[in-house]
Amino acid sequence: METVQMLKTLCQTGGVSGEEERALEAAEKICADLGRCSRTVHKSMVCEVMEAQSGGLHLLLNAHIDEIGLTVTHIEESGFLRVAQVGGVDRRSVMGSPVVVHTKNGNLSGVVGSIQDGENKNPTIDNIWVDVGMDAEEVKQKIELGDKISFVGAFRELENGMVSSKALDDRSGCVAVIKAAQKIKAYWSEHQLSPIGLTVLLSSQEETGGLGAATASFGICPTEAIVVDVTFGTTPEIADKHVSELGKGPAIGMGATLSRRMSKELATVAKEEKIPYQIEVMGGGHTGTDADGIVEAGQGIESCCISIPERYMHTPIEVVSTEDVDAVAELIFAYAKHSAQVCR
């Protein structure tokens, strides 16, 4: 499947943290030829692409499947839904947003309302509501407290291979790791190479703390992990932050808890294979990605981050470059070939 098609399919499916099943079902279809897929305790999807060999390299490719959203906390007598955020919802962007309420019996459309109080302040999440166009009686029949709500953000192709959609954080990462695994598997099979362990993990609940990846990686117990997430892509108001640029390739993370060896080798193979790349310095002890949980899992797992530059993170109109998504897959593929050689 083409990158754009795969992105569209995955991004346009609902999968708010804690309720990722619909998105995972879409991903599982795409991964059908990749290997045996299963669910972990916390509903992450694990796909065993090549079986781990005792004492050999076992590479884990991770991206998170969940997306930010809202959840129903109260039903007003007027039928409006009060909500809480699931993950970091940007209060500046919620007013006037179309949303989908995911209920047991299907999806219901709604819009986010808020009092235009003229206070020159953005509403807090406590002060917004979701209007589903029904009275309280009907709402109570159809919607339960705890139901998840995702933002509507249609998939749009912009110029220069850029695309806009909700949930590109981190479905674009999911596409990159799936494509990388497909490439590696095909190459190994074509050249009849001695197998390495290769597992794809599409983790749940990253936006709410990383429970999915931390627990799943303990169970998988790889020798090393590559975590693909999105990072800030530059725009005028953050030009002074020295963040990555869209279309300039994967951002290889350098940070305290990350493996320097892996980061350096990724940069080396990128140069050798002429894959464009950028360096993203992740200051402090955390990366803000699933890598934070994976490095600490079990006896500890050597990990690195590869990030896809993204504009307008955590809004329904996130933007990434499909060229960067493809380049991440290429980079992981090149790294796998390189690592297998080193190990032999």
Partner: peptide, 16 residues
């Protein structure tokens, strides 16, 4: 699309 600075990089004042 009409974008703006992501939530992660906003100061408390900017959010409000």
């Amino acid at each position: 699309v009409i974008g703006a600075k992501p939530i992660h990089l906003q100061t408390a004042e900017e959010r409000s």
